[in-house]
Design a protein around this nucleic acid. Sequence first.
DNA 1: TAGACTTATTGGTCACGATT
DNA 2: AATCGTGACCAATAAGTCTA
Length: 396
Amino acid sequence: MQLSLDTPDSRPATPSDDRPQFTSPSLSLTINADLALAQPDTPASLCSPYLPYTSYHSFIPDARPPSPAPSSRSYPNSPSALAFQSRSSKKHTKKKLDALEKKKICLYHQHHQNARQEDIAEQFGIERSTVSKILKAKQHWLAVGDRCEGMAKQRPSKFPELEAEMRIFLQICVDKDVAITDALIRTRALQAAKALGIGEEKFKASSGWIENFKHRHAIKSGKWTTAVKSCTAATFNPNPGLNGTSYLPTSFNLHHPPQTASNDRYPSPDSDTSSDDQAAPPAPSISDPARADYPGRLSLMPSSLSASSSSDSVNAMQTEGTAYIPQDPLVYTGRSEHPPVPTLQEAESAIDTVIYFVNACGHELLEPNEREALTSIKCALFQFASGLPFDRYRRP
DNA sequence: TAGACTTATTGGTCACGATT
DNA sequence: AATCGTGACCAATAAGTCTA
């Protein structure tokens, strides 16, 4: 129906994959050098995170576009537009931004209040209006933790709690060197779904789901290829969230009634019929009554914090059979020794956690200036990580 | 069991109008 | 005139089903 409208004279149907054609290495270098000169203290010009985008900086028009401003690649008389018109039948592709990239865009904007959206869009190789939409949700993206860098997509799973539970299970498999078979995934997924109250009519752990699950988690040949074995109990921080970077998983909340048997929900992979051997201690059940004593804290955790960042530490706890809920979750007691100095990454992650928490709680928790202070700390850490001094007076 | 297919949803891009 | 906000569009992808 709308096909008749998609002519070069009207809205282009296939714009974005034209970039390579316009890329000129020398031109690109010149442009980037100019940007760096114009904004000498920008993370974009000095820090590596943005370097991948420089390949897209293939064309900047000599003059401003007519108003209303066309989008980055729609200048009617620009070389890109002319080239585009001749190639408008090419398939449209999009650049995919993960949460960390959006966060960088927000940070960039925060550090460069005078930068136009058009400039930011050029810098990151995306459409200007995309920048506008990202900045509209600035607080959300700024609160994103750095560990979601590898996430392919932000779209939540249809059963996010199940996904989080399965990640816990995967980590146990990795820690115990158990092959992750389809049958094992299916069995555990159905168990988890049942425990979560997801009916079989809603979730069947179909082969398609298993395939996608394996694809999402990069499980190949029975191995979780992107996994890292949990740290040992000796090195594991028994107080996650205080000087570590962990979050509590969504599974540990009161919405999940305790199971009758402590280990029937997440038995050790060893106990499965499809696997072997050792009499390793079964992973403690997440419905351990000792963990249900802290409903307030657990229920405060945003559900979107569920999977990746939380499960590793939790699994380490589970694998080692260590209780990981502090005796008093609100009072930092019993720390007779100084904690190790956290790494910069841990510090950044910790402030991310706080910001995320504050955002999740709503605006009544902190005053605007207090929220601003949090953001300032975040910016300081970010610039420090980038090797830049934090100039607090440049901030608004 | 693999892969094609359907359906639903997300999010990037385009284009236009509003605002400064 | 320059810049920004946003609705509409649609490509990409997740999830589940079907079929060979």
